[in-house]
Design a protein around this nucleic acid. Structure first.
Lengths: 230, 230
DNA sequence: GCGACTTTGTGCGCGTATTCACAAAGGCTT
DNA sequence: AAGCCTTTGTGAATACGCGCACAAAGTCGC
């Protein structure tokens, strides 16, 4: 399930706060989901809750980590070291979750050889070498769109079976390869769409959409759930 | 619908290739969706296809752009100018889609005053001023997790009604505010999950998962759809 | 030890999304 | 002009996910 990582994040935060046990209601609120859904999700890993009490945080963290495969380290290569690739290379959230960036690759001779976050950028020609040497199993594609499919084909041919794609293209891969896509401009476009409807879009919506005329801080359910920075 | 931006991207690519007309089958393949679904999606904007021929690319681009609200410019502020914020500030995909970054804000005195992608980073204290001056309607939160909810409350209080959140926290907002979340480490965790299952996870899966023993480039349906870099 | 209370686990109904499959519609060829 | 062929638009069946609501289960107080 795609929600497991969210639960895990919330559980880690609870752990940091020293909480030992948590009810489905609380955890669901922290994760922003319905409590019945959360219970159903957790029951799919087996039953790890105690009725009348809740779930033991530490045990749940372990179970979810294991289910997600985070008990082992995953070796990642980042291909395309532009703005985004650089940011990803320096992103702390990877290492702390068991993802080890083992290679940075780029086609630009200006960039090859640079040291970024402790790694030297290597030329894309060495892609297969880097993947083989380090046993890379996940490739992060942060190249321009035009290069993405070609790079993808190469990493797949080199044995990679999971791809995280930041290029704005639909990648075509064999069925045994998983691709996940992150497209920043698509996210903004979806927001723009909703924003337009709120403002009274072309369909002539109300123009208010339930927003009170003037509201001084009445955010509903102030969960205010904050985790440790990473 | 969340698929409209994908269609739009594919249509732009067709435009660049000089294609004037496209069938639902082709466009669906390019966007990676079922053709019936695509037709149903498009029919919800009204009927813009010609039976026996297909859709006129240019007209469709216009219709979808209008539906998404891309015929107008949207003003964006990026809050948190770390690795990720910097990458976002320099990301070309925003400007080309009608999103204008009008402000960069950070709390770190070291960063405030720096010029990045033609914009001077301003102190987070001036958040409300920046939002008001430029008429910001979309806020991009790229702060550490611990700061995100606080920043979010402030942008909402200042009148922003759409938030794109990169911080690994579940933001709590009033119901009239839209939040979209992008969490990089969650994407990787989902890949790790599938990767583990492929390798024969804890449930004792086959360990092969349909992958042929050795396959020399038999990627199915070589659409090889590539767009212009942006 | 027992009863009341809390919380889990899940059966069920509902609304939505997805896909198939086909009839209607239009273009193109002869 | 007529028939064939392509492609759209959509009705109907299916699959899916979600959330309510409740019974089973276990804890805690007395």
């Amino acid at each position: 399930m795609a929600r497991l990582p969210v639960y895990l994040r919330a559980l880690h935060a609870l752990q940091d706060r020293g909480v030992a046990t948590v009810s489905s209601e609380e955890l669901a609120a922290a994760a922003g989901v319905n409590s019945a859904k959360l219970r159903k999700d957790l029951s799919h890993l087996g039953s790890y809750g105690t009725r009348g009490v809740g779930y033991e945080v530490e045990y749940l963290v372990y179970q979810i980590s294991r289910e997600l495969g985070l008990t082992q380290d995953w070796v990642v290569a980042i291909i395309g070291v532009g703005n985004l690739g650089r940011a990803l290379a320096g992103y702390g959230g990877f290492a702390s979750r068991g993802f080890r960036v083992a290679g940075l690759l780029d086609a630009d001779e200006q960039i090859v050889g640079q040291e970024i976050s402790g790694l030297t950028v290597r030329h894309i020609d060495r892609l297969e070498d880097v993947i083989g040497e380090h046993g890379v199993s996940i490739a992060v594609i942060a190249t321009p769109a035009a290069a993405a499919q070609g790079v993808c084909d190469r990493v797949v041919a080199a044995g990679v079976t999971s791809v995280l794609n930041f290029a704005p293209v639909v990648l075509t891969v064999p069925e045994w390869v998983d691709v996940r896509k992150v497209d920043l401009s698509i996210e903004l476009q979806i927001l723009a769409f909703h924003e337009q409807r709120k403002a009274g879009g072309p369909d002539g919506a109300s123009g208010l959409n339930g927003r009170p005329a003037a509201v001084p801080g009445d955010r509903p359910e102030p969960v205010h759930y904050v985790e440790a920075a990473e």
